[in-house]
Computed example of a mutant assay.
Amino acid sequence: MDSAIDALVEIFTWVGFSAGALIAGVALIMYLFDGTWLPTRGVLEDTEHGRIVRWFDEDGGVNEAHLTHEQERALEGKGMADIFYRRGARGRMRLTQGSPAVRAVAYLAVGLIGLGVLAVVVSGILLFTGG
């Protein structure tokens, strides 16, 4: 039984650290490709094709984007909103500065690395208790 537990802890250690490091690398690449998002104030307007938001970028250009259903629900009843637009891209906006996808992948990486750390701690406890 002890060898099965040792093997299981060893597997969790390797899987936690290796998969966590790999996914952390993926999160870093996603973060770099996500680009720079700058804050601004957007004006919301109802049109015949749905609700849109318009804003000025850092170069003074006017941008506009159609709101998704989730964004419409979050901004319901508002005439202006704090938004984030992507530097160098026209018509791209979101309501959060950080990407939810990047955040989710980073949390997964942290969780897997935490599993690896926990497995190392359990392995140490088993080593010193003779179990």
Rank of each mutant, 00 (worst) to 15 (best):
G91P: 03
L8M: 08
D57C: 06
S123Q: 09
R73D: 14
F128H: 15
L8E: 13
Q71N: 08
F12I: 15
V110I: 06
Y107K: 09
A27Y: 01
D6S: 12
V43T: 11
E64S: 13
L32T: 05
E70S: 11
R51E: 12
E48R: 10
E45H: 14
R94D: 04
M93L: 14
E72G: 06
A4H: 08
G116E: 07
L126T: 14
I29D: 00
L127N: 10
G16Q: 06
E48P: 13
A65K: 10
A104V: 11
A106S: 12
G91K: 04
W37V: 03
S123F: 02
F17E: 04
W37E: 14
S18H: 00
I83C: 03
R54L: 15
M80L: 15
T13I: 13
G35H: 06
A65C: 11
F12T: 12
I125R: 11
R94V: 02
R86Q: 14
G50K: 15
F33D: 03
G91H: 06
R90S: 11
V110F: 08
K78M: 05
G111L: 13
W55K: 11
S99K: 01
R92Y: 10
A101Y: 07
V102N: 05
V105G: 05
G111D: 02
F128S: 08
G42W: 02
H49G: 07
V117K: 08
R94G: 09
T40G: 06
A109H: 00
E48V: 13
L112N: 03
V15F: 13
I5F: 06
D57L: 10
T40H: 03
G77V: 11
